[in-house]
């Protein structure tokens, strides 16, 4: 992919989650998982991120802010769908004000399933997937 990255910096966008996935993403920062130690960080702005990590099924209202955030990430960039909702197989499928996952905006580069996914699974899947990027 051309950009060899030592630390994967991600911007989080909640696009309609139940906050369960957020809790587990936050847990990655506690000292049991310590994601920074594995070279993963959640950063404050899309402009200095390598990609987005998206939770929730993508509500109609959040679709545009999500795309704006995506456009603000410099190339090359990656999109991660976190949790069943974002993956397109969550409980909110078919509700009148939301889409069915991140794929309705753009095909994600990595899909992490689970409701919510276990922190160790999030960490492991991102780590394994990153190796395919170099």
């Amino acid at each position: 992919m051309g950009k060899s990255i030592q630390v994967l910096q991600l911007r989080h966008v909640d696009a309609g989650s139940c906050n369960g996935c957020e809790q587990e993403l936050t847990a990655l920062g506690n000292r049991f998982y310590d994601m920074q130690h594995s070279g993963i960080d959640v950063v404050a702005s899309p402009r200095h991120a390598d990609g987005l990590v998206v939770t929730g099924p993508v509500t109609d209202t959040m679709k545009r802010p999500l795309m704006q955030d995506w456009d603000a990430v410099p190339e090359p960039k990656w999109l991660i769908a976190l949790g069943d909702c974002a993956a397109g197989c969550g409980v909110f499928q078919g509700a009148y004000a939301c889409y069915s996952g991140v794929a309705s905006v753009r095909p994600p580069d990595l899909v992490i399933m689970g409701c919510p996914p276990l922190p160790q699974d999030i960490l492991r899947q991102i780590t394994v997937w990153r190796k395919t990027l170099d």
Partner: peptide
């Protein structure tokens, strides 16, 4: 609506 951390929108 999006925020600079792991927060809901």
């Amino acid at each position: 609506p999006t925020h600079a951390g792991i927060i809901e929108s």
